[in-house]
Simulated scan of single mutants.
Amino acid sequence: MNFLLHNPTRLHFGKGKLENLKNEIKNGTKVLLTYGSGNIKKFGLYDEVLKILKELNCEVHELSGIEPNPKLSSVRKGVEICKNNNIDLILAVGGGSVIDASKAISIGAKSNCDVWDLIIKKETPSDRVPLGAVLTLSATGTEMNPNSVITNEETKQKVGFAHPPYTFPVFSILDPTNTFTVPRNQTVNGIVDTISHLLEQYFNKSENGELVDRFCESSISYMMEIAPKLLENLEDYSLREAMMYTSFVALNGSLSVCGGDWSTHGIEHSVSGIFDISHGEGLAIITPHWMKYVARKNPSKVIKLGERVFKLKKEGISDIDFCDKVADSFKNFFKQIGVSTSLKECGINEESLEDLVENTFVLGDVIGEYVQLRRDDVREILKMSM
């Protein structure tokens, strides 16, 4: 292992932590409040946040309607608001999409170039408008990492980026009660996303990453254990708390010290960039087929995963057959919790195959670390996923 680990985000975790906004925001701050479809108004969180901001004599501007796959057009609107009103702080109240968009707005507001050039790393930021977050959906871990994913709706390109330290939230507030109103389908997508982040980091090529591997294995097992229970009772505090904690630990940098593969995310970004399906659904579809494909080239980690997470016995079974059983075990779990497991279920067929392949390679000609993939490889994985 060879790494530098630094995470500057202050995390306020637990019931009633919204009050800590009063300690994080200075009196008289000019705030851009960002949020999504308006559920925070429906369930009262908007009023709670606004009450605190008014107590602090904040000048509040708003950007609402940020999409589940956040669009470049929304980011550009936020950048314009920040520049026109000399915004001091962006406060994102929502899930991963709202926070991701707000990260892009944060660096775009302090740059002279178009924000898309920062997203595709044609340009590099040198400053930002500070960002705070109030999380309402556990999934991406964006509340404690520098990562963001933005879709350019004109080109259909969905690009993940990070510009540390500028895209780290300064602070994030995580109260599990704020996730009670997340509907079942979004909870399912969050479960898949969390498991996928753990898998992406599990499939690294480190020679001494056993502790990271074991943490990923135990966390995947734990998420698969609590998922059915949570889906039966969406307002169970202890289960919401457990999911919220696992989601941010899964992608706050501590498990990334050995590297990771991330090709499943790359392929999924192409799919949801073009067809606007939910990120979690796309990951549930791609992951088992990616696993089967890469196992033909390097079965070692898939075998270890099957033995440790699913307690499968390998005696008398070929490597490929065993790895297929592991991949099918994940696929069956995803089916069990009610998420699609084929692209055709989402109305996507082979007519779109070449567009999906090309859209996967927006930033280069190779993806993946555990097994490097090129266009022919991705084409086969997508065919298997149909």
Results as ranks from 00 to 15, higher is better:
Lys314Phe: 07
Arg10Ser: 14
Ser300Thr: 15
Lys15Arg: 13
Val134Asp: 00
Val134Met: 01
Pro164Met: 03
Tyr237Phe: 14
Asp321Pro: 08
Lys314Trp: 03
Val378Thr: 08
Leu305Ile: 12
Pro125Gly: 08
Ile317Tyr: 03
Asn185Ile: 15
Asn85Phe: 06
Asn178Ser: 11
Gly65Glu: 05
Thr360Asn: 07
Gly96Asp: 02
Gly364Val: 09
Ser106Glu: 02
Gln336Met: 15
Cys58Met: 03
Ser385Glu: 06
Arg308Cys: 07
Asn332Pro: 03
Ser272Ala: 13
His269Leu: 09
Pro183Cys: 11
Gly160Tyr: 00
Gly368His: 00
Leu382Gly: 04
Glu351Cys: 14
Ile191Leu: 11
Thr246Val: 13
Phe322Lys: 06
Val339Gly: 02
Leu198Cys: 12
Gly316His: 08
Leu56Asp: 02
Thr34Ala: 13
Thr9Glu: 01
Ile40His: 02
Asp47Met: 08
Pro299Ile: 12
Leu53His: 04
Gln372Gly: 13
Tyr245Met: 14
Ser329Gln: 06
Phe333Ala: 08
Thr187Phe: 00
Pro228Ala: 13
Met223Glu: 06
Gly316Trp: 04
His265Ile: 13
Asn298Val: 12
Ile320Gly: 06
Ile87Leu: 02
Met244His: 04
Phe13Arg: 11
Asp236Asn: 15
Asn233Gly: 11
Ser318Tyr: 04
Lys22Glu: 06
Gly44Gln: 04
Asn252Cys: 11
Asn2Thr: 15
Ile220Cys: 03
Val257Pro: 01
Ser64Val: 09
Gly253Gln: 02
Val129Ala: 03
Arg214Pro: 05
Tyr166Ala: 07
Tyr202Asp: 06
Leu239Ser: 11
Ser138Phe: 01
Glu207Ser: 14
Gly14Asn: 08
Met243Gly: 12
His289Val: 10
Glu232Ser: 15
Ser270Asn: 09
Gly266Pro: 04
Val249Ser: 10
Phe180Pro: 05
Gly260Thr: 09
Lys313Leu: 09
Pro169Asn: 07
Leu45Ala: 07
Leu11Gly: 08
Leu198Trp: 01
Ala92Arg: 01
Arg296Val: 11
Tyr202Arg: 14
Val326Glu: 01
Glu307Asn: 12
Lys311Leu: 11
His12Trp: 12
Gly94Ser: 04
Phe180Gly: 07
Val362Ala: 06
Asp328Lys: 11
Thr151Gly: 05
Thr360Gly: 06
Asn204Phe: 01
Val159Pro: 00
Glu354Ala: 10
Thr264Phe: 00
Ile274Asp: 02
Gly65His: 08
Asn349Gly: 14
Lys156Arg: 13
Cys113His: 07
Lys205Glu: 10
Asp117Phe: 03
Phe180Gln: 07
Asn112Pro: 08
Leu199Pro: 05
Met243Cys: 11
Phe275His: 12
Thr194Trp: 00
Asn208Met: 08
Glu207Asn: 15
Glu19Asn: 13
Ile40Glu: 00
Phe248Leu: 12
Gly94Ala: 08
